[in-house]
Design a protein around this nucleic acid. Sequence first.
DNA 1: ACCCTTATCT
DNA 2: TAGATAAGGG
Length: 645
Amino acid sequence: MENGFSSPRTDAFPAGLRVLVVDDDPTWLKILEKMLKKCSYEVTTCCLARDALDMLRGKKDGFDIVISDVNMPDMDGFKLLEQVGLEMDLPVIMMSVDGETSRVMKGVQHGACDYLLKPVRMKELRNIWQHVFRKKIHEVKDIESHEGGPDEFDDGHLLSAGDTNLAKKRKDLENREHDDQEFSDPSAAKKVRVVWSVDLHQKFVNAVNQIGLDSEYQPGFLFNTLICIFIHKNISYFILCPSGDIWLSYLLFTTFSCHLNNACIEPLCVILLAEVGPKKILDLMNVPWLTRENVASHLQKYRLYLSRLQKQNEPKTSFGGIKLPDFSYKDPPGSFGLQSSTTMHQNNAANTNFGYSGNKILVQDVGSQIHGGDLEGIVSFLPAAEPKKALIGDVPDPQKTSSSSLMGTTHSLESLRPDVNYASFEFTIPRQHSWSGETPVKEQLKQEHEPYLLLGDGYTNPPLPIPHHIQVHRLRSVPSIYPRTSITERDKLGPIETRPLCTEYKSNHVTSISPVGRTVDLFSVQADSHIINPQAFEAISTITSSTKSRNFDQNCVNNLESVQQNIIPGSGSALLSSHGDVQLFSLQGCGYTENIGLQNIEFSDYNDSELVTELPSHLYDGLRFNCDYLDLMEYPTVDQGLFIA
DNA sequence: ACCCTTATCT
DNA sequence: TAGATAAGGG
């Protein structure tokens, strides 16, 4: 097509692809339009085949590709297909709810370049550009003399087209033989090394950063863990909501928030964790010819690069001048794998350096003065028994906490990989309670091999004035570039049996920090002299098990109970109760002898069986985060562009 | 079946 | 060295 992607000829080639969608069903039209737009395509819809034809005729070069339903009242889809084939050389994709071979064959015979089955998946739509692309390639080839063909694509990535085709084709092979023969000729098969130009790398980095920022709900995509920190009666806690789906986490959190709210507890901050994998990056990058393997490979190098970078900065890596224990007992920068509980145990004893590791974040209240090395008051956790499986039957002794209790816990999990995840937090709390989002909390996220047990000494802290309204002012998403640590067992959650009681809790101000670059200097964060509750964040350490809970109601109740039971006033250890997905930790600072007093938090609502419902999809919208959190200024730029070169 | 990470290859 | 590929694992 001469029209090619003339209009969209931009960096992001497939973006702007002009698609004409024809379907008599308005609902489908809408859906498709939405999906296509999501792919950054330029979409035109039409519910009548005739109109479609008219449009095409009247606007030659107006479209790059046509997607048409097979069954339409005014004109058979095949007929349309035929006409288009005759009059204009546009790739046409047919679709229908019926996958009968003969039909598909018919479509193909009539010249369809693809045949999609409804419901159409995003993936498929994302790939439709290929048809246009291929056509283009062929034309260029035919002309041969055109050396400038590739110029169409500024990145000069065209070279990899063949590779792309093959790669993509591999997957579609089963049902797309036709395409294969038609498009993957020998010449195209030549594989070309992908060159990660600065531009491309930038896209990569952007994608990484974006993960965790994109607030739109996409099942199984993006976020999957949420952490909420709050203080109650001078004791800080945090809730960990690991799940395969951030929204589930969010719902759980939301629900919990309501109770907190009732108890006049305000979350200090909310952190979202997201896993970053080649696939997601690839999707976000939206670079057609790139393959997952390409990204995976690059990601590997990137991680190495980051760890190198980190190592350089290591000496500086101390909190408030405190030298942190180093747990990376093993290995070089490259290995950030997750460790088994056992390993962790060992590590605990060992001293090593910081390292990154998946989904482990380190947040520290920089403002508070932490005494390095002082591990007294180690935060402990008490994984609660999971109702059903009771895998974690025994609650470790809070006192023993740390490694030992962890051991016990994890060991009881059979095949289940100890879904243990430690997180330490390091952040600066901007003075006051200005959780208004105006004072962005800067957080330094760090990843390390080991749970961090940083504790401060006891301080004498004035009681915290507790706001009456809980509001999540900040939501930070923190995509982890490092391998996941199985914080979650995604998708195993099953239907949520909870009902969001306070959807209004959705955050209004979400700020995010750089997912990746965090290592490097976020430490510059100012340590405000007026920390709200220094003691509160002395240390945080958490462990999470991903045991699933079936019944949120029950769990919540259990939670509460266990919390109340387990609280050991003055123990200085953290206490945790958990139902599979939400865990509550007390982060009591040393020297504090106050009871957690969650009595005020009522979970009774959960007892209402009527509340047990599946997560209504419409809630997603309601829970959609606002996007105003994208404060890019907060992004460290460390990694941008540094990698290359 | 799919995706991820790591190690190794080129 | 950078990127591809193979291997192992969840």
